[in-house]
Design a binder for these strands. Structure first.
Lengths: 217, 217, 217, 217
DNA sequence: GATGAATGAGATTTCATTCAT
DNA sequence: TATGAATGAAATCTCATTCAT
């Protein structure tokens, strides 16, 4: 890992091309890898373990995927190219296609959706977090790209509009986004720490806090 | 809060000094392990690397520490039992010994201090984050314990007082703490993502956001 | 008893053949391990040595066998569960299926056969002896089981018959067996001590002594 | 081990010279080594273990004893030079200084004494057995020497006398000795195999068998 | 003489990857 | 494509031995 951007970017592009003709076994492998990588970490997971959980032979893992690193990429690719942008997209377009009258309904539209997204994609998010910690520049850049893109085209304009309407605090847009994310990511942190979480309460309080914090009083 | 007082590295070295059953070489080993573990991750660091950086023979690592895992524990234990609680303690007492008149001065007292704490202890924090991701229950529990303890004895009462004075929003104390932390941890996240950060701006905007969000308008 | 029928090496190879889940290389590993373990002892034999003699890579040893101890078990198990009981069995049935008229022909039937058995199976017996000394309870119990079983079903009745006929001394059967074995094992001891042995003489004298000692005068 | 006679013989002679000025700690080391070597085997015992059981530092083991091999020699030396010859001697002189009237009293004089000797020196005998199995030529030669010496000067003449008197079977003297030993060593074997033993019974039956077997009827 | 930390050579073991079937 | 035995490089770990205190 952490061996520079090129390996990852190369593999990433190649993987993207091939990403549709997946056999059942190959899907099982990706599934098993996702589960194991995210629960134990990438380096703590062996090819044998993946094969076993996927119910295939070790060789089958390498039949399709050049190496373990490539398998990681293959696991992350759909996430980074499909799920995440889509999620960001939803966050951008769906959430922002309406012209919210006030910050409250704006926050209301985002928070519950994002918390559920975390629940649904917990494993994948944990895996990304792992890669960020181990300094995988490829993953990091991919993440940044996915965000910058969507955010700048969809979210930023909407925030600006709310600010101009005098409804939202006059902080730089990237900080507005940052605070939205960190408040929401607190939920992810709680899950990482095995803390008991109650979705209803989380939604209620995070919403309240964000509304209060982003609203111009 | 005085500069450097709650620097993990400082605290860690002090802790090491107090461990007078440790030889110089053993301290070098712990130091090298801390550095390598936090910069590359635990599994990405080999015994040979540690020995080399510590300037000792590989065997010397195992003379004192039963195995690599035990070395990790030896590195983390003083952090989790000494440095972290002490840092949390300072956070609790120092920051909260004054009776803040309003949320603004309360937030002002915390944010700059915590951001600098993150800067100074980036390596150690990253190591802890690594362990949380890899699901090290030991680390997780230690972290929880350190926090619950200090927070409940020092921070919670202060929050309550501010709330009773009608200055702070009426959210549960643990959520107040959660929002303080997540807003601050955003800075840690930015560093993990290699994003350019400007301390002055961070302080300014995080303070502004938290003040607005926690203040009762 | 026909020559070679109860040769451990033969029986061992047959057993190996029946283990059709073993590849050729794995059989070579077991064969090499048997040879090295019994000539040098278990702890004095390294994985590298085994691999070299077997003509495989070191890793191949551990591909099939979890660890060195497991390899020892794999070597001993067929000996203790297949070869040994079968050998004991032949000893029991073949030697005792006739109704010997007197102790002399009884002893005559056993001694030469057992001495040749020791010669043929010297390596395997030495390995077992090694394990007994190092207090391997597994091996010890297996050995006991193999013996108790066969002796009680086949040998004991024959001894009793000879005793009732007034031809054999009235000692407990287990002691009769013990004396037969120890007198014969003297030959094994001589070989361990690198003493010059002459099979013809050994047979002659051991037979004479046992006949005299077990006969009722 | 098993590295030729010279190492052993050299060490053996050097050890002999120094064998009197032992400090308390050194005696403890020898005792601990004897216990551990005989219960687990030589190679399965580490210097650290010996030091720990002896209650001394690891270095102290090597202060006096050149290396582990030398320690083994030092453990075996008193046995091979003192206990064993003395035992053989007793077996030779004590037991044979009387002119036994018959084989029965001759056997009676030997068996109980030897069985008790085995009990008393079980650990040391086991250690010797270990060395014999691992093919330690030094030990083997020492053993042989101790025996040949004593046997030929004391025992052989006595056996010859009994044979000439027509009381003992006319087998070669070395075989007579062999049968005496093996019958008695059966007891040692039973202990190795953790079999329940009753000294009274053993004495009774071994005596009976040997008497019958060696007596000229 | 006694200590035990330090050493380094070597042993065991793991595991990503290859390749013949 | 799928398999899983085989590989070998590298990692973890052990331990007899040395040496400064």
């Amino acid at each position: 890992m952490a061996n520079g951007e090129n390996d990852f970017q190369e593999l990433y592009k190649e993987t993207l091309k091939k990403m549709d003709d997946l056999t059942d076994k190959q899907k099982q492998i990706l599934q098993a890898a996702l589960e194991l990588f995210s629960s134990q970490g990438f380096s703590e997971t062996s090819s044998a373990q993946i094969a076993e959980r996927a119910g295939v032979a070790v060789g089958s893992v390498y039949q399709r995927f050049q190496n373990k690193q490539a398998l990681l990429v293959a696991v992350l690719t759909p996430l980074l190219t499909q799920a995440l942008p889509q999620a960001v997209d939803e966050f951008g377009t769906t959430a922002f296609q309406h012209s919210f009258d006030d910050v409250e309904s704006f926050v209301d539209a985002i928070v519950p959706d994002r918390l559920r997204f975390i629940d649904k994609n917990y494993a994948a998010l944990k895996l990304m977090a792992d890669q960020i910690i181990v300094d995988d520049q490829g993953v990091i850049n991919q993440l940044k790209a996915a965000f910058t893109n969507q955010m700048s085209t969809n979210v930023v304009p909407n925030i600006k509009r709310l600010q101009k309407a005098g409804k939202m605090v006059d902080l730089p847009e990237d900080y507005i986004i940052q605070f939205l994310f960190t408040a929401i990511l607190g939920y992810f942190g709680k899950r990482l720490l095995n803390m008991p979480v109650n979705m209803t309460d989380e939604i209620k309080h995070i919403t309240a806090f964000l509304t209060n914090g982003l609203m111009k009083h």
